[in-house]
């Protein structure tokens, strides 16, 4: 049984469990949306003193910060106890495309080219992580949500704004993948 769990899980298990998580949050009177944690953390750090956007009762969002801490613990448990350390089995076509822009075939879950300490301590690697994070934080708040809030909670509630946001996610993702990544790497 444990051997089976340690293998990567098929895609259909993921959607089911994600919706189970969403159902648990709804049952406890909350909603599924992760990126608002960034706003909460800014507010908890005192950003509300200078910027009105962060002047709200952030303590009411403590439950979502607890969800965030759970997500970190879930990652830790997966890595320590539920992983066989195998490389991600992406398609051959992707491996070839990535090799063309200087990425080695997958050795694990994440590319060394971005997530190793070596990459972090190069100026380029540092700016990629900082800049990418900035785009995620700025874009999710400007657009009013991220993958959980718009693509899952919003689309499933047939919200047109969420569809527009998801189209935006793909415009940005395609531009980055096909036009910018070859220039960056």
């Amino acid at each position: 049984m444990l051997e089976l769990i340690k293998q990567p899980w098929p895609w259909y298990t993921s959607g089911i469990v994600i919706v189970l998580v969403m159902a648990i949050l709804l049952f406890f009177g909350k909603s599924f949306g992760f990126s608002s944690n960034f706003r909460t953390i800014c507010a908890a750090c005192g950003a509300g003193k200078n910027v009105k956007f962060f002047d709200f009762n952030w303590k009411a969002q403590t439950w979502n910060l607890m969800f965030l801490i759970g997500a970190i613990i879930g990652g830790f448990i997966s890595n320590e106890f539920l992983s066989n350390g195998e490389a991600v089995q992406i398609s051959q076509a992707t491996i070839q495309d990535l090799q063309a822009i200087g990425f080695a075939a997958p050795q694990g879950l994440q590319p060394e080219e971005i997530f190793s300490t070596e990459a972090l301590f190069s100026l380029k690697g540092f700016l990629i992580l900082l800049g990418g994070g900035f785009l995620i934080g700025f874009g999710s708040r400007y657009g009013g949500g991220c993958t959980s809030g718009h693509a899952i909670s919003g689309l499933s509630n047939l919200q047109l704004p969420s569809l527009i946001a998801v189209i935006g996610f793909f415009i940005g993702g395609l531009v980055m993948t096909h036009l910018l990544l070859p220039l960056i790497f």
């Binding site: 997966s78 994440q110 971005i114 990418g132 995620i136 874009g139 708040r141 009013g144 946001a165």
Partner: peptide, 29 residues
């Protein structure tokens, strides 16, 4: 706001390969 904000988010998502939730899950790894 949804189109521009979403596009900015998408740029970051494709660069880092993680949206906000997975950023923290990866930290746990």
């Amino acid at each position: 706001r949804y189109l521009i904000g979403g596009t900015v988010f998408g740029l970051g998502w494709a660069l880092i390969g993680a949206c906000p939730g997975p950023l923290f899950v990866n930290l746990g790894h």
